[in-house]
Design a binder for these strands. Structure first.
Lengths: 341, 341
DNA sequence: TTGTAAGCGTTATCAC
DNA sequence: GTGATAACGCTTACAA
């Protein structure tokens, strides 16, 4: 059926070794031999079995990534954008991607163990760090190459390679933006507390309020699930319980879109009655109605850079800079409305 | 370092064979032995090397997918949604996904040969069929299991497993919808001619016009690249050259979003001045401004069903239905505007 | 310049 | 119940 080295060897009359070396382009095989072997190889449509190669070379040229599996995540632009950045850069280096969709929990850890322990990939990229993240503990214990989108929480040690944006600064910028427009009652929808970046974003909120001399009100802060639904319910709750709120900051764009739905569902106008801002700047942010004021994170580029980082790690090249903190930029669009009177 | 069967064998005093069988849960190993071995395995944190397993078992439990690599594709909801459907269903069957990002052309074919010939995956899923698609020719020649999102072109033979939506009916429904609103001058932005579904959509357009007794005008039809830019330029061209046009059908939602930008860029109102419709019903369609009238394809579900199809193929199970044509549904939203006076 | 043989880590066959 | 041994397909010392 599918030809292997042995078939080429038999057909050509040479040994498996010689065939292998001819195909690999070694110099110590005579031109005539090489040509003959190459010809037979193309004639039979030979393609090396990568399993054999990988097992022998102990290298898969594959980058692993485990992404959240749940029915809603297909609308999660963050992961898909990250994956695309990773995938395209990996492709440039002739690496492929091994993707496993798993829901957070023990199943997910099993998938990590299978992928890492089973040596299915040469390194892994992970995203959305959690408090005392078991994945990172595991990967470090295995001394396995990995690169992360996101730091550890502020009170934890970040002793691993990562790229993150300064989301404290990002949220602070949003608060300042709203304050400059005249808002004094600003609600915040945080990510779930177990995520590492939640504290940074909370800190940015506090920092922004303090700079503006606004007193912090804990009841202006709720948690959401990072999906549209989280923004929807969070906003409903905030507005119901605190009717004086005039602006809502959602900690990602998906929740901000949900927030807008909630506001519009109450018959109010986003930007005019209630200002909204998000975080990420996913593609839909620019096409939403109204367009979404947000903090731009270069997710696609982060994916690309994580690959470069990871490949250096895999090859054992020294990494000049393996902990990168990017400064995000504020994208002012219509959802934050104009100056208030 | 990383423990293998040999290490467990040495540590336990049993042979590699027995260790392997104990771990596999064979009945012909004594309970005491099994327990001892299992204990050592967990103690050392043993994880089977999947390369070894795969090579031996000739099975990878992996589904391959090659997606278009280009900087804009990260905003391409179609592929990401399909991937998520595929990935989540694969996960349920304990399969992973091997993704390779490649731009169309010889490189892409090489990637297919590497993945198939190299036996890196047990089967493949492909999308967006092309005229006399070389990928399909190749996969058939290799008798390799694959399942496709999309049929062959109308004048070609579709002798492979697929799931597709009846896009001829879909476009016809859009034409009928526009006609019912009073439109007589309807522009069409087709996909590139080399794509297999282009002819179906064109046929749907013709069918819709004919039913309404509207004469077909070839200059009302242009081709676009399936990205926002294609919709933008296609619409600009259509409106510049045929100012009487009052409605534009874009053959996917991304182009429809581009069409809306073009119209709004001219200071005109989508839905009121020029009606717009798309195809796919990607998540952003519901959140665009205005919301987008479109034809809903259940892309995520198609991804899931393709996996089930493919797994049957891989396992050699008989497939009751391996050529599925779904009827799409019309989603009327704001971009098509109301009835014209 | 070419060939022999070992080994990557696993499972399956067969004998004991 | 258990253990040698071969095999999956490949690369690479080492010999010739």
């Amino acid at each position: 059926m599918k030809p292997k080295l042995k078939d080429l060897a038999e057909k050509s009359g040479y040994s498996i070794t010689t065939v292998s070396r001819a195909l690999a382009g070694y110099s110590d095989v005579s031109p005539k031999t090489r040509e003959r072997i190459l010809q037979i190889a193309t004639q039979l449509g030979y393609e090396p079995n990568s399993l054999g190669q990988q097992l022998r070379l102990q290298e898969t040229r594959t980058i692993g990534m485990i992404i959240p599996a749940n029915d809603e995540s297909f609308s999660n632009d963050f992961f898909t954008q990250l994956m695309m950045g990773v995938g395209n850069m990996a492709s440039l280096h002739r690496y492929d991607l091994l993707i496993s969709a798993q829901s957070t929990g023990e199943e997910e850890m099993q998938a990590y163990r299978r992928m890492v322990g089973g040596r299915r990939a040469d390194g892994m990229i992970l995203a959305r760090t959690r408090r005392s993240d078991p994945r990172i503990v595991y990967l470090k214990s295995q001394q396995y190459p990995f690169a992360v989108s996101g730091r550890a929480a502020p009170d934890e040690q970040t002793d691993f390679p990562y790229i993150d944006v300064d989301s404290q600064a990002g949220i602070r910028m949003l608060v300042e933006h709203f304050v400059s427009l005249g808002h004094r009652h600003i609600g915040l929808i945080l990510p779930p507390p177990e995520l590492a970046f939640t504290d940074y974003r909370h800190a940015g909120y506090l920092e922004g309020l303090e700079k503006a001399g606004i007193i912090y009100r804990p009841d202006y802060v709720v948690h959401g699930n990072l999906l549209r639904s989280g923004g929807y319910y969070g906003t409903s709750q905030l507005l119901d319980e605190n009717p004086e709120i005039t602006a809502v900051i959602a900690c990602n764009d998906l929740m901000a879109l949900g927030a807008m739905s909630a506001i519009q569902g109450q018959g109010r106008r986003v930007g005019l009655d209630i200002a909204v801002a998000g975080f990420d700047d996913i593609p839909s942010a620019e096409y939403s109605h109204p367009t979404l004021t947000t903090i731009r994170q270069p997710i696609y580029e982060i994916g690309q850079r994580l690959v470069n980082m990871l490949l250096s790690l895999i090859k054992g090249h020294p990494l000049e800079d393996n902990q990168i903190l990017l400064t995000p930029t504020l994208m002012v669009r219509d959802s934050s409305g104009g100056k208030r009177v």
